[in-house]
């Protein structure tokens, strides 16, 4: 009985979450994610040193991190754009707040 309740709870939770996410009105910021902010909020929580790779490899590694670190697609894209774009943090072993390595 406990197991059935646990399954029901888990399934309900998992169904409710994407359903909520699927409502655009509840995610007004999905188009406005700041790559640098997303990078600092998510990547630097675990990674300290940075090494950047080719854009195609970084694309792959960020997809990996999207799954591993429970990022949304928008966050992953914004982080990739930040890392690959003009704002990309320098490869510096000085461990500034921007430092990160993926994965």
């Amino acid at each position: 009985m406990k197991s059935t309740l646990a399954i029901a709870f888990l399934t309900s939770l998992l169904m409710a979450v994407p359903a909520a996410a699927g409502n655009p009105s509840k995610t007004p910021h999905s188009h406005e994610i700041d790559g640098e902010a997303a990078y600092k909020a998510n990547c630097t929580r675990c990674h300290i040193a940075i090494h950047t790779y080719s854009a195609r490899s970084e694309r792959t590694m960020i997809s990996h991190m999207r799954v591993r670190a429970n990022l949304t697609k928008d966050e992953a894209d914004a982080i990739f754009q930040y890392m690959a774009g003009e704002q990309k943090p320098k490869a510096a072993p000085t461990h500034t707040a921007k430092g990160a390595a993926i994965p």
Partner: peptide, 27 residues
Amino acid sequence: GWADNPNKPDDNTTPPSAETSVSPLPT
């Protein structure tokens, strides 16, 4: 049903750009 629909302009994703269109490489 929630999956991205490429025909839908507002699919709740970041607009494609030069960077996001980079094809990923086995790594």
